[in-house]
C-alpha cells in the first residue's frame, strides 16, 4: 500500500489551509495618507512624517495615549491624526517618520503598531542606501529597537 503520496498531499493541503485561514486580515497594505482615509476601517500600513508640534502624550485612561499628526512622505498636502494607546516609543522624540499600522476611523488613524524611523548617519552622504534605525511599539505595549 502506497500511503506516502496521499499523506504528503494531506499534509500539504492542511498546511495550505492553515496558512490561508491565518492570512486573512493579517497583512497590511502599504498606502498613502489619502488612500488610508479612503479605506476607512481597513487595516493598512501608512508612512508619515511626524509633525512634532502636534505631539501630545496623555496619561488619562488606563494605558496612556499618544496623539500626533503626520504629513505625507511624498510631499502631498494631506495630514492625518494618529492615535496610539500605550507607552510612548523610546525614540519617538528624535524620530522623523513613522510607519503606522492600523485603520482610519472616526476622523483619526488608530494605530495598533508604530514602527518609528530615525534618520541615519548615512542619509545625505555618499552612501547609496540609507540604513534606518527603528523602534516599535505594538498595541500590547511591546517596544523594541
Amino acid at each position: 500500500m502506497k500511503r506516502g503520496p496521499l499523506v504528503a498531499f494531506i499534509v500539504l493541503v492542511g498546511a495550505a489551509v492553515l496558512t490561508f485561514v491565518s492570512f486573512s486580515g493579517a497583512t497590511a497594505r502599504h498606502v498613502t495618507i489619502a488612500e488610508a482615509m479612503r479605506l476607512n476601517g481597513q487595516v493598512v500600513q501608512v508612512p508619515g512624517r511626524i509633525l512634532h508640534d502636534t505631539v501630545r502624550y496623555d496619561l488619562q485612561g488606563d494605558r496612556g495615549e499618544l496623539r500626533f499628526d503626520v504629513a505625507d512622505m511624498q510631499g502631498g498636502s494631506e495630514t492625518m491624526t494618529i492615535v496610539y494607546s500605550g507607552a510612548k516609543p523610546e525614540n519617538f522624540a528624535n524620530a522623523t517618520s513613522v510607519e503606522a499600522i492600523g485603520a482610519y476611523s472616526g476622523g483619526v488613524f488608530r494605530a495598533r503598531t508604530l514602527l518609528v524611523k530615525c534618520p541615519s548617519r548615512y542619509q545625505g552622504s555618499d552612501q547609496k542606501q540609507a540604513s534606518t534605525q527603528a523602534s516599535k511599539v505594538d498595541s500590547d505595549g511591546n517596544v523594541s529597537r
Partner: peptide
C-alpha cells in the same frame, strides 16, 4: 501584488502558533 511589499502582522504567526 503590492509594489512596496506587504508585511505580515504578528497576528498571523499567533494564529499559526496556536493551531500548531
Amino acid at each position: 501584488y503590492a509594489a512596496d511589499g506587504v508585511r505580515v502582522e504578528p497576528i498571523f504567526y499567533n494564529r499559526i502558533g496556536t493551531a500548531l
